[in-house]
Amino acid sequence: MLSLNGKYLNGKYKIPLDEKIYALYNIKNGMITGDAFWYTNGGHLECKLEYKRGVCNGLKENFDNDGKVWLRQEYKNGKQDGLSEMYSNGLLNIKSEYKKGKRDGKQISYSSGKLISETEY
């Protein structure tokens, strides 16, 4: 729970994470909720996450300097749960399935858009 002087935070906050990185959070009753954004390198969007009751719950996307998604992950109750996809040059490189924070199901690897391996977890 996020609080200041004994009161839970409510509203939109810009929180510095270090000298060049900051986050934008919506906070309700002391818990991050809704979309959160991390920015770096002069205001470039680095990451977008969905929160529910203070934990990552929904889609997380990481962006490269050109604004393209290079990592997309699904979360449930703060743990990876669902698909995880990693991209390079706009092409899917790795697609994995997760359940409760652990790999569960197939992991498929690609090179230049062509299937190169499948692993079952």
Rank of each mutant, 00 (worst) to 15 (best):
S84R: 08
G58L: 12
G78N: 07
L45N: 04
F63W: 03
S3N: 08
K95W: 08
H44T: 03
M31G: 01
W38D: 09
E50P: 07
D66V: 07
K20M: 11
D81T: 02
W70F: 15
N41T: 06
Y51V: 01
T119N: 14
I15L: 06
K114D: 06
N89Y: 14
L9D: 00
E85R: 12
S88E: 15
G34Y: 04
C47H: 03
L71H: 09
K68Q: 13
M31L: 15
G54S: 05
Y39S: 02
Y22E: 08
V69R: 08
E85P: 00
G113H: 07
Y39N: 00
G43E: 08
C56S: 06
Y121K: 02
K99D: 05
I94C: 13
G82M: 06
Y51S: 01
E85D: 09
R103P: 01
K14Y: 13
I94H: 07
L115Q: 01
E61L: 14
I27L: 06
I94A: 00
L83W: 10
E97V: 12
Y25G: 04
Y87E: 00
I32M: 10
Y121Q: 03
G43L: 08
E97L: 14
W38M: 12
E61A: 06
R103D: 00
D81S: 06
H44P: 01
Y39A: 02
G6I: 07
I27Q: 01
Y39D: 03
Y25I: 04
N26K: 09
N62H: 13
D35R: 09
G6A: 09
I21S: 10
D81Y: 07
I32P: 02
S84V: 14
K79Y: 14
D66I: 06
V69C: 10
G30R: 04
W38I: 15
E120G: 05
G43V: 04
K99Y: 14
T119F: 13
D66S: 14
Y8M: 10
E74K: 03
K7A: 10
G34P: 02
E120L: 15
E74V: 02
Q73H: 03
F63A: 04
C47K: 14
N29R: 12
Y8T: 09
I32T: 04
E85C: 11
S96F: 06
D64F: 12
W38L: 15
N93W: 05
E50L: 02
L92H: 00
N5C: 05
I32N: 03
N65C: 10
L45D: 01
L91G: 06
G11Q: 07
Q80W: 10
G90T: 04
G101P: 02
L2E: 09
M86D: 07
N89Q: 13
T119P: 00
N41K: 13
E61C: 13
N77D: 15
S96D: 12
S3M: 11
L17D: 00
K28H: 05
D64H: 03
V55N: 04
K114E: 15
S109H: 13
F63C: 04
N57S: 11
G113A: 08
L115S: 03
K48H: 06
I32E: 12
K20T: 13
N89A: 09
K60A: 10
K14I: 14
G58C: 10
N77P: 01
L9E: 05
E74L: 09
G113W: 12
K114H: 11
Y98P: 02
Y51H: 01
Q80R: 15
M1Q: 08
L2W: 15
G105M: 10
I116C: 03
L83I: 14
W38T: 10
Y98D: 06
L115G: 02
G30L: 11
Y51D: 00
I15R: 07
